[in-house]
Design a protein around this nucleic acid. Sequence first.
DNA 1: TCCTATCTTGGACTTTGTCTAAGTCAACAC
DNA 2: GTGTTGACTTAGACAAAGTCCAAGATAGGA
Lengths: 136, 136
Amino acid sequence: MSDLLERLRGRGWRLTSQRRVVAEVLDGDHVHLTADEVHARAADRLPEISRATVYNTLGELVSLGEVLEVSTDGRAKRYDPNAHHAHQHLVCSGCGAIRDVHPQGDPVAALPATERFGFVISGAEVTYRGLCPDCA
Amino acid sequence: MSDLLERLRGRGWRLTSQRRVVAEVLDGDHVHLTADEVHARAADRLPEISRATVYNTLGELVSLGEVLEVSTDGRAKRYDPNAHHAHQHLVCSGCGAIRDVHPQGDPVAALPATERFGFVISGAEVTYRGLCPDCA
DNA sequence: TCCTATCTTGGACTTTGTCTAAGTCAACAC
DNA sequence: GTGTTGACTTAGACAAAGTCCAAGATAGGA
């Protein structure tokens, strides 16, 4: 994730301790935290950080394409730092656990022209649902 | 939708005027209303209907499998009465318009066993994104 | 017609997210 | 190293979406 900070500096970002901590919290695989969870973990390291700053920083990371916004349950949005490798999500209907998964083929190709109604398609998001080994 | 009311009566539902109006509002193709929109349209016919009743009724219809809950934007959930024909959704990134679409093949089949991590998969939801003819 | 479990209501409350005005500070120039 | 300045952060008010509850109303069976 340190290269992320370099990329952000290259885009004219001021490198504040708050932004650094948010970026650090979002490091790793299969990370899908809500904004509140990001705030809680960031506050462990930087107790004064405000919710508004966490929301601002997450929004900036999303619009820069460094982080994906995922809403799998209609509740809080989740933030996925794995934005540079195409993937979909597998969600446990029992406990809500989320895994990144890689289906075969391109889902967009499965939509025939007659089913596109003149839309210019830019992409597709797939959410697989099921029960994880612990919940099954 | 009148057969829906019959099915509900068969399941022991009390047939109140509020439930009848909510079911009527949800009649038709390509209907994807938010709870607030359902409430507004229901209130046109039955001014005293409360938001709580609309939420209750929608929740009941969803758990009976008569209506699908769709959250395409992380904002308000939308309610889709087309629950008895498998379909996916195409959403305009410009204006938010939603169409029901029917991709080829089964998206679940595209997920190899090695990518299932021991989950028992129950289904998949696909959201296609793009620009509609008016917004393009 | 009466009874009662179920349903509805209004309003308080919670969660998630946005906005604003005032204060702070990173980065650049010197 | 010091000063300057515009971008950044903060606390708290606000808003949208949804849930919960106690009290009153009513559908449908007896």
